[in-house]
Amino acid sequence: MMHAEMLPAWAALLTALLVLIGAGLTLFGAIGTLRFATFFERVHAPTLGTSWGTGAIVLGSIVCFSVLGSRLVVHEILIGVFITVTTPVTLMLLARAVLYRDRTEGNAGVPARLASRREQQGRTEAEDGDGDAR
């Protein structure tokens, strides 16, 4: 730990705080994944780690390397941006796949398709399209 001795105390404290916050949020998300009952609840829990869990650790890394190098080092932001952009894509694709699987198998507790819901309400708007995005 040669480099850490060169770090001023305020920077070390700030880095420590940010890293601990990020790791703690990731841990909370993991515990949430264990404790929630259904998949559609569980799919929300890991996003704690991918939003501010990642964000805080990346910020801590930026603070540490910027103070060490006496210049602004922001290339870690790339990881934060990448995770922020890709996680919603992954989880929405996964949730849509699960919805499709649940409907195909006819499981209980799955919201009905928009088209069949309209039929249940007695409205016949056939020319309106099925309104269900694929």
Binding site: M1, A4, E5, L7, P8, A9, A11, A12, L13, T15, A16, L17, V19, L20, G22, A23, G24, T26, L27, I57, C64
Partner: peptide
């Protein structure tokens, strides 16, 4: 500052 950093990062890694 080295002690602060080492301890906090060790705890954070344990959490992860």
């Amino acid at each position: 500052s080295a002690a602060i950093l080492v301890w906090s990062i060790t705890i954070a890694q344990a959490m992860l």
